[in-house]
Structures are given as C-alpha cells and as structure tokens.
C-alpha cells in the first residue's frame, strides 16, 4: 500500500506538470508541449531526464549539508501526507480484509497539520543554506506566509471536525458522509477558507510570493540546479495533488458519491468487493482531478498578490471569517442535535 501511494503521488505529480502546461496553453490559446510522444504524453519523462543530466552546482559559500537537506526534506514531507488519506473502501480478497489506506490513526487531521508545519523547514533551510539574498528573502516570505495561513486553515478545520461529529480520523470523516449530504453543504464558508489557505500553503499563484520571479529571480530555489531544483518544483505538484485529495475527502465525501448504494445494488456487488473500492477510487480521483484543474485555472487567471495584501488577507479577513464560521457551526450543530450542553 505504501509503495502504491508513493508511486501514485509521483505519477500524478509528473502528469500534473504536463497537464498544467496543456491547461496554460489552452487558456492562452496555444498548443502546449506536443513533441514528445502523442500530444506530448512523454513530456514528463523528457523533463525528468533533462533534470537528472543537468550540471549539479553547489555554491562555494553555502552550507553543503543543509543545501542538500532542504529539497530532500521538502520532498519527504510532501510524500508523507498521503499516508492518512483513505483512497477507497475496504475490500476482501480470499477472506482477508485489505484497507485502501496506509494507516488510519485516530489523530489523522492533526498528523496532516504536523507534517505540513514541518514542511516549511525544507524551504527555509534550502533558502538560507544557499547564502543568497534572494533565496533568503524567498525563504522568509514562504515561512511567514505558511504560518499566517495555517491559523485560518486550522480554525476552519476545527469547524469541520465539529460538523463531522468530533472525530479526527480521516476515515471516519469520509465515512460519515456516505449517507446524506457531504460536508460542503454544512461548511460552505469553511471550504472557501480552506481552499484559499490550501492555495497559500502550496505556494501556488496568486500566493507564489516566495518564488516571485519578477522581484526575487527564483526565490528560495534561485541557487538550485539539476534534480535538486526538480525536487522543489515536483514537491509543489505533489502538495497540490494531496491538498486536492484532502479537500475532496474533507468537504466532498472522498470516495463516496450520490446514489452509490443504489448503483452497487443494481450491479449486484456485495460489500467488500474489490470493484466497489475501484469505483469509489474512480469517484475520488474525479474529484481530485477537478480540484487540480481549479488550482491551475486560478493560477493562470489571477495576478500575484502584493505582500501587504497577502498579509492583510490572511490576518484581517481569513482569520476573523474562520472564527465567525466556527461560531456559526456551533450554533447550527446545536440545532442539528450534534452538540449537547
């Protein structure tokens, strides 16, 4: 299961790079990469090969160990988040039950926050060890941005946990959405806040100030070359994939979809069948794909924020809004009977 999720994250991230370029080309009325293979289908392999064969440069005045540690840490934390996401329902083969999730820890939501908050060290260490003013500025921007938006994100997730009946396990959060409506119906504002914060946490435009090429050359990865640069860029796509998965699981029911039980009945599938897991996985993936498209759509539509606008949005708009959302959630859940005093 570990290997499957590892391969899946890397594979999706690789093809997300191609899809991003195709998508940008579509929005800008261009063709996009179409030379490597059919419609450029081999482009990610060509990019990867190019990255591996580029000259590797480590600046003389940099701290060598930390310089290499930075991108490795960033990549590692990006891959670690996939461990608690439930990719599909449990299935039974030959009397043994297999779970389509690496581990279902009862503090899954907090685990995600722990990993995300440690992820910023990759950028900070890399940016500082480069011994370059632009890289340092990029690293400092990244860390302050991530810390600011983590607060609003955390408060919106608390509201979500209240709606889900007080569980911190991702499997249970997804599970309680299988009958009735998905969490988005009860948490529209919370979802909006979470989505904006997810954009900021993944350093995607319009929040890509840490690498802001018009001011900072390349931001925290200015001094990086070869596959170490590749790791930084690639981890961004993995983060995007994982945060799309988290949003679908938190707010849109994960591997559940409307009339799923009726469909399985009509197809004559029993609970525990591998096909149910597969169909659920397909539904989950459709949602993830749509979120990835929204991420790209936002990136190629909106211009970048100015730094003070970014901080004002985080501290003066999103945090009060998420507190309001929390208060509203408590009132609504009291009338739904989920909270007793």
């Amino acid at each position: 299961m570990c290997a499957v999720v590892f391969g899946l994250s890397l594979g999706v991230a690789a093809y997300a790079t191609l899809w991003e370029r195709k998508f940008a080309a579509f929005l800008q009325d261009r063709v996009g990469p179409d030379r490597a293979g059919w419609h450029g289908i081999l482009q990610p392999l060509a990019d990867g090969g190019k990255m591996f064969f580029k000259e590797e440069i480590i600046p003389n005045l940099s701290n060598r160990f930390l310089f290499v540690l930075g991108p490795s840490l960033f990549m590692m934390t990006a891959l670690m988040t996939g461990a608690v996401i439930p990719w599909g329902a449990d299935f039974v083969i030959g009397g043994k039950t297999y779970s389509a999730q690496i581990t279902d820890i009862n503090i899954g939501v907090l685990y995600l926050f722990g990993v995300v908050s440690v992820g910023v060290y990759g950028i900070m260490i890399g940016g500082w060890a480069s011994n370059n003013k632009f890289a340092l500025l990029g690293a400092i921007r990244a860390s302050s941005q991530m810390i600011s938006y983590e607060i609003a994100m955390g408060i919106s997730v608390i509201a979500l946990v209240i709606t889900s009946g007080g569980t911190l396990s991702l499997r249970e959060i997804v599970g309680q959405q299988d009958a009735g409506v998905c969490n988005f119906v009860w948490q529209p504002l919370g979802f909006l806040i979470f989505f904006i914060c997810a954009l900021a946490e993944t350093n995607r435009a319009p929040f890509d100030l840490p690498e802001c090429e018009s001011e900072l050359v390349g931001g925290y990865h200015t001094e990086y070359s070869s596959m170490k640069l590749g790791l930084f860029l690639f981890a961004e796509y993995i983060n995007m994939f994982i945060s799309s998965a988290i949003m679908s699981a938190f707010y849109f029911g994960g591997f559940n979809f409307p009339f799923a039980a009726e469909l399985y009945n009509a197809m004559g599938l029993e609970a525990g069948s591998f096909w149910i897991t597969l169909i659920g996985f397909g539904a989950f993936f459709t949602k993830i794909f749509m979120f990835i498209c929204v991420f790209m759509w936002v990136r190629w539509t909106l211009p970048r924020f100015r730094y003070d606008q970014l901080m004002n949005l985080g501290w003066k708009i999103l945090i009060p809004l998420s507190l309001l959302n929390l208060a509203l959630t408590v009132v609504v859940e009291y009338f739904r009977g989920h909270i007793q005093f």
Binding site: G114, S117, V118, V120, Y121, M124, L136, S143, I147, E150
Partner: peptide, 12 residues
C-alpha cells in the same frame, strides 16, 4: 512547526 520557525526566521 510554529515557534521554531519564527526563531529560525529571526536568526536568519
């Protein structure tokens, strides 16, 4: 995740 990042921030 938070306090040490701010420490690092200031020291850098």
């Amino acid at each position: 995740g938070a306090i040490m990042v701010l420490f690092l921030f200031i020291i850098m």
